[in-house]
Nucleic acid binder design. Sequence first.
DNA 1: CCGATCTAGTTAGCTTTACTAACTATACCG
DNA 2: CGGTATAGTTAGTAAAGCTAACTAGATCGG
Lengths: 147, 147
Amino acid sequence: MPATTETVTSTELAARLRSNVVRLSRRLRRHAASGLSPSLISALAVVARRGPLTPSELADIEDVRRPTATRFVAILENRGLVDRDPDPLDGRSYRVAATARGRVLLAESRTRQGAYLARALSTLEASDLRTLDQALGVLERLLEAGR
Amino acid sequence: MPATTETVTSTELAARLRSNVVRLSRRLRRHAASGLSPSLISALAVVARRGPLTPSELADIEDVRRPTATRFVAILENRGLVDRDPDPLDGRSYRVAATARGRVLLAESRTRQGAYLARALSTLEASDLRTLDQALGVLERLLEAGR
DNA sequence: CCGATCTAGTTAGCTTTACTAACTATACCG
DNA sequence: CGGTATAGTTAGTAAAGCTAACTAGATCGG
């Protein structure tokens, strides 16, 4: 029963959004396949997509503090998913890039059995996927705005 | 009805959804007003809305293990937001209900200044709110289905 | 009715996530 | 060149949620 004509109040929506984010976040962590938590997969995906990044840039994009970015890089490097090259312009820093193995793992985490979320979404109809797609657009703008 | 004729792939959507859940979840925790984390607010809201519940029922609804529900109840009770009455039918258990103070805090957490999320959502247009509303419906079905 | 088993809640201990504060070392500016 | 600003790191802390193991009340078969 889609309440298409009813007014949606933002406070009511806030409560519902919070609950669902909390629950989905639990689910994702519980079903973490490939041995990487949602946070780490997200960080790896950012590094892979947005090319070589300094830890500070990663922290900024992922909306975490720099010590957390340091930890992300350390763990990902430890597993050979990422490597670092000195920054030619700044001796204090370095650039992080995804390794071939990191890219493989990312691809697998999207398509393979282990991908709980992709599997769940694949059961949805096209119209539902479109709805989610649009909602994510809204959410992204919201996150970007409220920094 | 939307001009979007492009196909939305579920694997691509999964990655985007994961990132946004992870980030929003960080935001929510960071902006936790009223001294309650998103998890605890969500638990309190469930107790308030779905009447007196046993810890097991709470655990089931919130999709956590029982020890986690025990902790939720302990913390909420400690802050006077919830109280417990013995279960007349089962001597091992009890029923948890929201106190007046708990309900006040919930109401405040929805409307007041401190409510980061409600404030952010209030800047959106009605059509965006409707999009989110529909997407939450999809998400809820998804979460319910994948138990 | 009684012992065996099942179930609700709890306790203890662990892991992960992410924070702040404080430190090191390099960059930059007057 | 000296002082300040900035990048990354280290250390320590707190919260979330898990599993394993325990306690006590419920339930079921004989």
